[in-house]
Design a protein around this nucleic acid. Structure first.
Lengths: 206, 206
DNA sequence: ATAATAGGTAAACAGATGATCACTTTTAAT
DNA sequence: ATTAAAAGTGATCATCTGTTTACCTATTAT
């Protein structure tokens, strides 16, 4: 599929794209034929079906102006996520509180390929030795699965914190990356502890 | 213009938007009427003309599926930049290779609001005390104007470096943010020194 | 050379589509 | 309560539009 195109087919495809961006809606077969100075619609009609078979065009049978370009070069929509910036994560798992929303940012899916992601603004210096600063924005993948050493967002007694995660025997160690701060220990069955997500990325604005 | 809309008119407008993004082309009057469970096309037809008169809709008379939403509720395109990841900066004295394009990333214009921006991957630890790590990606605004204390990309003898910029009397000090490294001094009229850009942001992937 | 494919002409058909008229019902403002 | 605008019904009309058939021409691969 996505076969080679003849020059004529490429011209038709370009004409459709041009018309679309010019008028906001696709052309009819007759309008296309007219653009190329043709007196019949059959030629274009055949070509459109060929273009559809080759995978370059979307075309609904028997519907007017139903042409849509399949542009493999414009992956923009696929690669962009709009994620909310949460200044504050509250209780009420598994649903996060979106009331404290600072705004939204568009993120390349390179960072937020996972469906359930959000952004969290860092408060404090508890991860400064991991080069995460106060005010940085973290890209968080919502998940409860994490391994030792992962940087996670934990919800402990209705308070969200960024820590490094370590499972130790019957307890969990939440390790701040800050030499001046002490680790937090949580019993494994402590009911008011939840892992909210995994830190996948960091955004900083100077 | 852009008069107030009744709830019904808003619903129709939303339905057109929805259909458009769903199908890639606008709906017909009958398709709209059907969506709202109406048996006649006249009501929708009137409403479309009203919406056009109020400036919310583009509609070509006598042309099928010629509806276009005016309200660009989709500000996505405005807020997104596609920036190239150029070259890399190596420990201490790296080279900026414009040919070495790693790829592109979509960035929210919150970070790259300026027209000429690009991305640069950091190599080395020369800015580790500023919490910029090896492998981080910097958002760089192409400019020669910088102030004391700015983190800049400098080109010195065909080599690119990330440093903090300080103007001192008749020379310029390029200060690495690393206690183990020494500053570089450049005479103000030295011909092989240029400021390429200003570091505006930082992206990190875990 | 021969055959296959792409591209094009001319004509016709059926259903899709926008427009319109007369009239009724609902909604919102005075 | 009264009234004007908005919203909707049902039917009809003219045109637009996609589709199809038969036939022709040019190009290209075998």
């Amino acid at each position: 599929m996505m076969n080679e195109l003849t020059t004529k087919q490429q011209q038709v495809l370009d004409a459709i794209r041009e018309f679309q961006s010019q008028n906001g809606y696709p052309p009819t077969i007759r309008e296309l034929a007219e653009m190329f100075g043709q007196s019949s619609t059959a030629g274009i009609h055949k070509m459109l079906n060929i273009l559809r078979d080759k995978g370059h065009l979307i075309k609904d049978d028997r519907k007017s102006r139903s042409l849509g370009i399949v542009d493999p070069h414009d992956l923009t929509a696929e690669r962009i996520r709009s994620l909310p910036i949460l200044g504050h994560v509250q209780a009420g798992m598994p649903q996060l509180a979106y009331e404290e929303k600072e705004g939204d940012l568009f993120i390349d899916s390179e960072w937020a390929g996972h469906a359930d992601s959000f952004l969290l603004r860092v408060r404090g210096l508890s991860m400064i030795d991991a080069d995460i600063r106060d005010g940085d924005i973290l890209v968080v993948q919502k998940t409860e699965n994490c391994r030792n050493g992962d940087i996670i967002i934990a919800l402990l007694d209705d308070e969200a914190t960024v820590k490094r995660f370590y499972k130790e025997h019957d307890r969990i160690r939440l390790q701040p990356e800050n030499q001046t701060m002490q680790p937090i220990y949580v019993q494994r069955d402590y009911p008011h502890f939840h892992v909210i997500g995994l830190v996948r990325g960091l955004l900083r604005k100077f």
